[in-house]
Design a protein around this nucleic acid. Sequence first.
RNA 1: CGCGGGGUGGAGCAGUCCGGUAGCUCGCCAGGCUCAUAACCUGGAGGUCACAGGUUCAAAUCCUGUCCCCGCAACCA
Length: 504
Amino acid sequence: MSKKYITTAIDYPNAAPHMGHVLEKVLADVCARWFRLSGHDTRFQIGTDEHGVKNQRTAAKEGISPKELVDRNVPLFKDLYDKLNISYDYFVRTTDQDVHFPTVIELWKKLKDSGMLEKRNYTALYCSGCERFMTNKDLVDGKCPDHQKAPEEVTEENWFFLLSKDSKWLKKLLTDKNGYTIVPKFRQQETLSLIEQGLEDISFSRPKSSLDWGVPVPDDDNQTMYVWCDALTNYISPLGYLTDKEDKTYWDDAEVTHVIGKDIARFHALYWPSMLKNAGVKTPDKLLVHGFLTSEGQKMSKSLGNVVVPSEVIDKYGIDPLRFYLSHEVPVGRDGDFSWDRMQKMYDSKLRNDIGNLLNRVLVLVGKDGGKINVPEETEIIGDTWKKYAEKMNSFELSEALQIVCSLVSDCNAYIDKKKPWGLEIEDREKVLGVLSECLRHIGLMLLPFVPDTAEIISIQLGVSYADKLQNKGFSLEGINLWGSDKSWCAAGKPEILFEDLEK
RNA sequence: CGCGGGGUGGAGCAGUCCGGUAGCUCGCCAGGCUCAUAACCUGGAGGUCACAGGUUCAAAUCCUGUCCCCGCAACCA
């Protein structure tokens, strides 16, 4: 049994979570659940990135302290993910001074000892109206578009991380077979082209006067760590890295996968491994980069007013239909779209008419004969489907994997029509229904990573022996995903509607 | 010449790496079935795969060029 460690990006809690946050968590959760089902000892971590000027400013605007702001907002994220059945093992908060800070501070010291940190003057354009640094791109005719005045040149001292020194090493890491694999592949090429263009050193700290809400730089009272050293380190701080609590189980001994959005790909692909290497820590193995969600075909933005709030979708359709939508309609790595119309169509056709109806028609027929289940052994038809499904799951092609399950459902529906069990003699009918019930048992297992509650309900209605253990973290496919492998299964449960008609 | 993604039947997408009868979902049309949540099944119409050249026995797929859309470019999932 090999070990896996999977993480998501930590969310910035200065506003309520939206669909984009949910997409990432669902994606990572499907992977984590698949890892566990495949028998891997898995750790799954999510969390929040709570420092930074933006929170400092949002808090000031509301007249509360940054700590009060994050303490108020973090539960919005945590509660949502609990509701969504995200099976994380640990929720890290970067403001946790016991769990997070020690590793961050030690990592900084290691980087400094390695000669990768250097104090420099940093000059940039600063708009006092916006209270932030501007880039040339932000300016219109050399002026801040919001305040109609030219920003002033401000120089401040920053610690810099000498990333450029690692260009060669990074290129090797990203191209080595056993290095750091980026999925999808075009993101790897993009990253390599970034290296080709020349990497710049990165500002790793800010003077306390401009950023106070963060981890203090060790041995430099006037500086606060900027986001990178603080936030990225969340992946190893709860493991006690670089402290006396260090536990290597889920890092050195595990395959590490980071699930993140395309906006922060470069930080995870370049900064993070370089930081780890220079601190003498193992680098991660896989970087799974997802795209962004549009809303009704347009970029989601507050000004357009088309931001989709997860709770609205959950209230109307429920948890699993949302998880199903994000897994089925958004190919991993690419941008996707959320549309209410597509949500409704998917709910009706896939969940209600195909899966729900199939379960119902089979169970009603079984019930009419007394509810006995008898799986004919000679009909092995599931092995090939499992093989294809597992291949897709293992290569993170999740929507394709789900489509394989949907095809199996379609095949079952076609099979009923072809065999017409209702017109057969009892013995033949039992055989046909045995095949269908067994297929449904496997469909339940294959759906488990995507829609865990639905998978459990299907299994309960079918009456399989392990139905109540399905969502336990130690539950694995071992010994139950072969044809007829649930030997003690002999009776079906009661059929109930899986997905209601919402129009009624 | 900043970087990247995309342009495939009415809609949304897969296929492009490793050329070989253009596939899926939804919608539409016609049949079938009646176990089931008026659900399910079968068949059909509809595409010169953005455009122009080139390579090849053969190109959506490789090469060259052009046009259009969309992201990103130090803290925005």
